[in-house]
């Protein structure tokens, strides 16, 4: 869930022109030692610090100037610094998104546009999800939608968006489990997720960017981790995070840009208070027809 938010492209107001493609690899590292067990803020000496390393390939193709197709696929490795539980690693979920700018208007130099994003994700591997906090993902098929408004005046911009995600039932390896009651099924209903995102910053074109980000998510439902219990897939997970991102073209590379970011969780529920860093390279491939425009 958090890895997708770091991808940025589905959450900004920028588009690839028709038949252009940009692809890249983004590495990430995040870790937490404090977490919220329900609303109780605590550490756990039997897991110590939980760290997550990731490498994500991503791409963005311009079907038209106003309709882009995006994909992301992260590989993740999670481990705990204390206790005996074995770490997990592997490819997680493939995300495919359609992004469409359906409205744009210039108010005396203040350019405002509205963008919709629709898509979903599905696990690409049979990983073990019922193994939080070390599972590499939730192993749920998801469908998501986002409405985004972007405003730019000169070099300054602001972007705000809200998203909704529904998540398919997750199948466990066990045949019964306890939430706030006993459930005799290997299926878990996953609460939907509401997300919101605000970005403020400076950008020149689409590859010189510096921005501040406020990122929030709340599951709509779910239950709290009981005192001294392990987390579970259908917990009530909330998270509020702040971060900075930057993107800059590498001179004389003819299309290669460097991206870097940092973020930290400032509030949450049934989640780790992680601090994370990302760094990556993206390259833009152009087609000849575009140059003639």
């Amino acid at each position: 869930m958090s890895i997708n938010a770091n991808a940025q492209t589905d959450i900004d107001g920028l588009f690839m022109a028709k038949r252009n493609f940009c692809g890249g690899v983004i590495g990430g590292y995040s870790a937490w030692d404090h977490y919220w067990e329900g609303t109780t803020y605590r550490i756990n000496q039997n897991i110590g610090t939980v760290s997550s390393q990731s490498a994500m390939i991503m791409g963005n193709y311009g079907v038209t100037d106003k309709l882009n197709v995006l994909f992301m696929l992260p590989w993740i490795k999670n481990e705990a610094s204390a206790g005996t539980l074995i770490g997990q690693q592997g490819f997680q979920d493939l995300t495919l998104l359609l992004k469409n700018e359906f409205w744009i208007k210039d108010f005396n130099g203040l350019v405002v546009s509205a963008v919709g994003v629709l898509g979903g994700s599905l696990p690409v591997q049979d990983y073990t999800a019922d193994y939080l906090p070390l599972a590499i993902g939730m192993k749920s098929k998801t469908a998501m939608g986002r409405l985004l408004v972007d405003a730019q005046k000169g070099y300054w911009f602001a972007t705000a968006s809200a998203s909704g995600m529904i998540r398919g039932n997750v199948t466990l390896d066990r045949t019964a489990y306890y939430t706030t009651e006993m459930i005799y099924s290997n299926k878990v209903v996953m609460p939907s997720v509401f997300g919101y995102n605000v970005r403020l910053g400076w950008r020149e074109g689409a590859d010189k960017i510096f921005e501040l980000v406020l990122d929030g998510m709340n599951t709509l439902g779910g239950f709290d981790i009981r005192r001294n219990d392990m987390p579970f897939l259908s917990n009530n997970m909330d998270m509020l995070r702040v971060g900075v991102n930057t993107k800059y073209p590498i001179p004389k590379t003819n299309g290669l840009s460097i991206m870097a970011g940092a973020n930290t969780v400032i509030g949450g529920r049934n989640m780790g208070q992680s601090t994370g860093y990302t760094a990556g390279l993206v390259y833009q491939f152009l087609v000849k027809s575009n140059k003639k425009e």
């Binding site: 920028l14 588009f15 690839m16 689409a206 003639k292 425009e293």
Partner: peptide
């Protein structure tokens, strides 16, 4: 140059 040919046109 078309390199930064992003869709933000008006």
């Amino acid at each position: 140059d078309g390199r930064r040919n992003w869709q933000m046109r008006m």
